[in-house]
């Protein structure tokens, strides 16, 4: 009995010692969760923007305006940080992120799998894919409804490419190529075609002024999102949560409507 008790005590002692030896260094490596203030010592969220690309961002007298500016300000406010917009040229967007010149890249960028080694994206904030615009009176509410209609598009655009493929899958429709998307939209406005297939952002911009008589249908998906460095998971969580809150309380939708026709499907 005594021997058993002694063995049990030994086991308990060595077990404790072993746990201490293994566990203490691990505990030492664990840091308590840092407050936002510690993550951003300067109290500033650095947002990389492309100010040549309206409606996302544009340089006007007195500063920057655009969807990305409004969203960047809303995100910073959610995180209780000040915001600093850093203008970038298109060649240097991701390099600025990689070299820590910015915290997030909010520049109308789409989710790009080629960046996945260094970059992660937030949940998408809008779908910039192709939009089919048609009068509300037209029965064009599904992809297959294209058949027998006359569809305007810009020659050599992504819509042109999409229609080449669609022609093989959908019953014949009449193609109406125009020199560019702007002309295709004008043809729709003047009733010369049943619908126009255009770049999503362009379509949603057009809808802002013609939404009273037009309807829109997203035919492809091209998600626009916020890019962040892969090695900062804490930032992904912060941005994800902040963006979700903006979505849920309707502020993201309000910001989108300020620049485009309406918000895209929920992230």
């Amino acid at each position: 009995m005594v021997a058993r008790t002694r063995i049990a005590l030994y086991l308990l002692w060595y077990g404790w010692l072993f746990s201490a030896l293994i566990g203490l260094p691990m505990l030492a490596r664990l840091k308590p969760p840092q407050a936002i203030g510690e993550r951003f010592p300067a109290g500033v969220l650095r947002v990389g923007i492309d100010p040549s690309y309206p409606p996302f961002a544009n340089h006007v007298e007195g500063g920057f305006v655009g969807f990305d500016i409004d969203l960047g300000e809303a995100l910073a406010a959610e995180l209780e940080l000040a915001v600093q917009f850093i203008p970038l040229g298109y060649d240097g967007l991701y390099d600025a992120l990689k070299t820590d010149h910015i915290d997030i890249l909010l520049a109308g960028v789409r989710v790009d799998y080629r960046q996945s080694q260094d970059v992660v994206y937030s949940q998408p904030y809008m779908n910039g894919g192709l939009r089919l615009l048609s009068p509300k009176t037209a029965a064009l509410i599904r992809r297959n409804d294209l058949s027998s209609h006359k569809i305007a598009y810009g020659y050599g655009t992504a819509a042109d490419q999409f229609l080449w493929y669609a022609e093989r899958e959908i019953a014949p429709f009449q193609r109406a190529p125009y020199e560019d998307e702007e002309t295709a939209l004008r043809a729709l406005k003047q009733g010369q075609v049943s619908a126009a297939l255009v770049d999503g952002v362009e379509g949603l911009r057009f809808m802002r002024w013609h939404g009273n008589w037009l309807q829109e249908l997203a035919l492809t998906e091209d998600h626009l999102a916020i890019a962040m460095r892969r090695d900062r998971p804490w930032l992904h969580s912060l941005i994800h949560d902040a963006l979700s809150r903006l979505w849920v309380d309707g502020r993201l939708s309000e910001i989108l409507q300020g620049w485009l026709w309406q918000a895209s499907p929920a992230p």
Binding site: Y53, Y90, G108, V109, R110, D112, R114, G128, Y155, G156, A158, D160, Q161, W164, E179, D222
Partner: peptide, 21 residues
């Protein structure tokens, strides 16, 4: 691969060889 933004509008062909004006 198409960039999906204004950079594509410098090209003469799309990534799928669609010829531009």
């Amino acid at each position: 691969v198409d960039a999906g933004d204004y950079r594509d509008h410098f090209t003469l062909l799309t990534s799928e060889f669609q010829v531009k004006p």
